[in-house]
Deep mutational scan, measured.
Amino acid sequence: SELMNSSKLIRMLEEDGWRLVRVTGSAHHFKHPKKPGLVTVPHPKKDLPIGTVKSIQKSAGL
């Protein structure tokens, strides 16, 4: 199965306009000026399962 580095996923979010608002432990929480909701990324993780990545991307509207 495909894995993604959390840094790469965070870069994709930031390029889309998401900004880090809070860190709780290894959970990084992002908000967007125009899009609704809060997106949480486990970080640092070298090997996020593709299912997790897809669900984060979906929440972020990517």
Rank of each mutant, 00 (worst) to 15 (best):
K31L: 13
K34F: 11
Q57P: 01
L13W: 01
M4H: 09
V39Q: 03
K35A: 03
A27Q: 13
K8C: 15
T52W: 07
E15F: 06
D16T: 04
S26F: 11
K46D: 15
S55A: 15
P49D: 15
E2T: 07
K8F: 13
I50P: 14
H28C: 05
G37D: 05
T40F: 11
K54W: 04
L62M: 09
H43K: 02
G25K: 15
L62F: 03
A27G: 08
V23E: 10
L3W: 07
S55G: 09
D47I: 13
K35L: 04
H43M: 03
P33V: 06
K8P: 03
L13T: 00
R11M: 12
G17Y: 02
K31I: 15
M12G: 04
A27T: 11
E15C: 10
K34A: 12
R19A: 10
I56N: 02
K45D: 09
I56W: 01
S26V: 12
P42C: 05
L3V: 13
R22F: 12
G61D: 07
H43F: 04
G51R: 08
L38Q: 09
M12N: 05
D16I: 05
P42E: 10
M4L: 08
I50S: 10
P44Y: 05
V23Q: 10
N5R: 06
T52F: 12
G37H: 07
L38V: 13
T40Y: 11
T24K: 10
P44A: 05
V41W: 01
K31W: 09
L9P: 00
R19S: 11
D16Y: 06
G17F: 02
V23F: 05
R11V: 10
S6K: 02
K8M: 15
I10N: 02
P49M: 06
E2G: 09
G17N: 05
S6T: 04
V53H: 03
S55P: 02
G17T: 01
K54G: 05
L38H: 09
V21T: 09
R11Q: 14
E14P: 00
P36L: 07
D47A: 12
A60K: 01
V21E: 09
L3A: 12
I50H: 10
I10A: 02
P49C: 07
L13V: 05
G51Y: 09
K54M: 06
G17A: 03
I10Q: 02
K46Q: 14
H32N: 05
K35V: 03
L13A: 01
P49K: 09
K54E: 15
S7W: 13
D47K: 12
T24N: 11
S7P: 04
V39N: 00
G61Y: 02
F30Q: 00
V23H: 06
L13G: 00
S6C: 03
Q57Y: 13
A60M: 04
K8S: 14
P44N: 04
S59N: 11
K58H: 14
L48I: 13
G51K: 12
H29S: 12
L3M: 11
K54F: 03
D47Y: 14
P49A: 11
S59I: 13
G37T: 05
H28A: 12
E14F: 08
A27R: 10
W18Y: 03
S59P: 01
P33G: 09
K8T: 15
G17C: 06
H29I: 15
H43I: 02
P42T: 06
